[in-house]
Amino acid sequence: MKFARAWAVRLWRVAAPWLFGLGLWQAIALMVSAVRGIPFPSPWQVAQVLWDMALGMIFLEHSLYHHLGMSLQRWAEGFGLGLGAGLVYALAAGGSEGVRRVTMPTVEVIQVIPGLAWIPVAILLFGLNHTATVTIIVLTTFPAVAIAGVMGVRSVDQRYLRAGRMCGAGPLALFATVSLPCALPHLLSGLRIGMGAAWRVLVAAEMVVGSGDGLGYAIIQSRWTMDYVSAFACIAVIAILGLGMERLVLMPLERRTLARWGMVAAAGTASGAEAA
């Protein structure tokens, strides 16, 4: 009896968020259908289409896997470039007050420009092609990583650097064993923001894609073919993958590092943890 009850509680904990989210969706679908008299894809319909797609149904000339693969590739390319550039910038600007003063405002401006606004810029720069798509993703990732990275570099604690030097650590060892872990809270939060932003901007980025594929492209294109259920299915895939990256990559990374070290949250850098 007691055992069954514990299981029921556990089941409820897992199911409740799903029930809430899908229930809200279902309620909106029913309401829109009733008020406006047009079909609004319900969770069940979307699930059915997703199932068909998973079995290899061709839509917009490609399978779901092809669309997904292309999108992931563009995302990885853009995110990787943005991440690399952001980290390099963070090292340069974090280390030099002059570089920071001159360049930081521009980076901040880039950060507040929404993804869609980059479309004309990207087309002007590269035309309607793969490069333009990747550029939009890079421009979204870069400022997020750069700004968090600069904060990370600046948050490196002098005391720890001294302790490291005193123990005989050279510049390289000092960077790997002191600076990097010190900056990690900021770096991880930058990584999280950058990853999410890059994934979200995918739809905008694939508006300018030259070839007819990708999840973002499929969403836009479904609108013209009035295939709203497929569009919803693609949105669902984007959401699941975005959440998956957060849950399967970032959160375990955080659990293994910051949580264990007591350096929780970006505000709780070294000194914050010490005060506890």
């Binding site: 604690d157 005391r159 720890y160 001294r162 302790a163 005193m166 064993t177 002191v178 872990p181 990690l184 590092t257 070290w261 007591g262 350096m263 070294a270 943890a273 010490e274």
Partner: peptide, 11 residues
């Protein structure tokens, strides 16, 4: 050096 705030690496 043994620092006042010990500077033990939390990581």
């Amino acid at each position: 050096v043994v620092f006042q705030d010990h500077a033990v690496f939390p990581w």
